[in-house]
């Protein structure tokens, strides 16, 4: 069974509800705008192209090469999509890839998808775009700007996205910042090397065979300045914020403490039914036993019911 377990895809359960919902809102706003731009700017020709490229990125993640000790490097593709399709379309393509991975292959959670989309589709594309276009400008349209720019963009976007994932985990109280940030960042600095080299190879190949795909000298799509600035801001913010958070984990705990509104919203609920209203069950261990018994009965009843149904169906055949 194909299972590209990537440390960047956060499963459900690891993010607090509040963090999940906040990142859902951010992702919906950004991706909603990207969707509008794509619907407006791109011709009808783009739709099949984006769909097939999303499938190609998914399939491209199967292309791997052995590194050492049984580990292997493989492609994530946000940078390639950004360079070939432009930032807005790339966001939608990466959204499709990450959503299908979560929905069908359980690679990343459903409630956590908002945060994963933010890391892979928003950060991945924005930081890629910022790095790539900046190197392009420095190279003044020379070919090496495409390759090094692409490789550098791939590495940077992966490392920055992993820092974001680490901070999301820390904000959720799932993983302390002083461990999560260096661990996630460190692993992805290495994973990013593989991604950078693959991106380099892919761009070199495409440049040699289909130079027209690079749209050299074409006007940048509308709103790309905002993406450039956004990419710069995210990269700068996370590059500064995460070392700070990992050396001062208390600061992050303070932020986590400020999010008390969920708890505050819950408080009136407790007052509705104080513990002593249900004598006996307020005892924790007894409740566990009762729940266990109910659970076993429930499962047993279902199993029995299914067996009975099956028998009935067989007989009627």
């Amino acid at each position: 069974m194909y299972s590209p377990v990537q440390p960047m895809h956060i499963p459900d359960g690891f993010l607090s509800t509040l963090v999940s919902i906040v990142f859902w809102v951010i992702s919906i706003v950004v991706l909603g705008y990207a969707l509008k731009r794509v619907g407006k700017d791109l011709g009808e020709r783009q739709m099949p192209l984006m769909g097939v490229l999303a499938a190609a990125i998914f399939a491209g993640q199967m292309l791997n090469f052995s590194v050492a000790g049984g580990t292997s490097g493989h492609l994530l593709g946000a940078t390639l999509a950004t360079i070939l399709l432009g930032p807005w379309a790339a966001m939608i393509v990466m959204t499709s890839v990450a959503s299908i991975q979560a929905l069908i292959f359980q690679d990343g959670g459903l409630l956590a998808l908002g945060a994963n989309l933010f890391n892979m589709a928003v950060i991945g594309v924005m930081v890629s775009y910022f790095t790539y276009t900046s190197v392009q400008k420095l190279a003044r349209g020379k070919a090496w700007g495409i390759f090094t720019g692409g490789a550098l963009a791939a590495w940077t976007s992966i490392v920055i996205a992993s820092l974001a994932a680490a901070l999301q985990l820390a904000l959720s109280g799932t993983s302390p910042a002083n461990i999560a940030v260096p661990a996630m960042g460190g692993i992805h600095m290495i994973i990013g090397l593989g991604e950078g080299l693959i991106t380099f190879g892919a761009l070199a190949f495409l440049y040699a065979t289909r130079r027209d795909l690079f749209h050299v000298g074409e006007a940048a799509p509308k709103g790309s300045k905002a993406i450039w600035v956004g990419g710069l801001a995210i990269a700068a913010l996370l590059a500064v914020l995460s070392p700070l958070a990992s050396t001062h984990p208390d600061g992050l705990e303070w932020v986590a403490g400020q999010k008390g509104f969920l708890e505050a919203a819950r408080a009136p609920l407790y007052n509705l039914v104080p513990n002593y209203v249900f004598p006996g069950i307020s005892n924790g261990s007894l409740a566990t036993i009762v729940a266990g018994i109910i659970g076993v009965v429930l499962v047993f009843a279902v199993a029995l019911g299914v067996a009975y149904l099956r028998r009935g169906r067989k007989r009627s055949k």
């Binding site: 292309l63 090469f65 090397l193 593989g194 693959i198 380099f200 892919a202 070199a204 190949f205 495409l206």
Partner: peptide, 18 residues
């Protein structure tokens, strides 16, 4: 080198997708 060649494969895959 292996990584770059894998990149070639990825480029090829993208080209076919295009």
């Amino acid at each position: 080198w292996r990584a770059r060649m894998t990149g070639g494969l990825a480029g090829n895959l993208f080209l076919r997708a295009f």
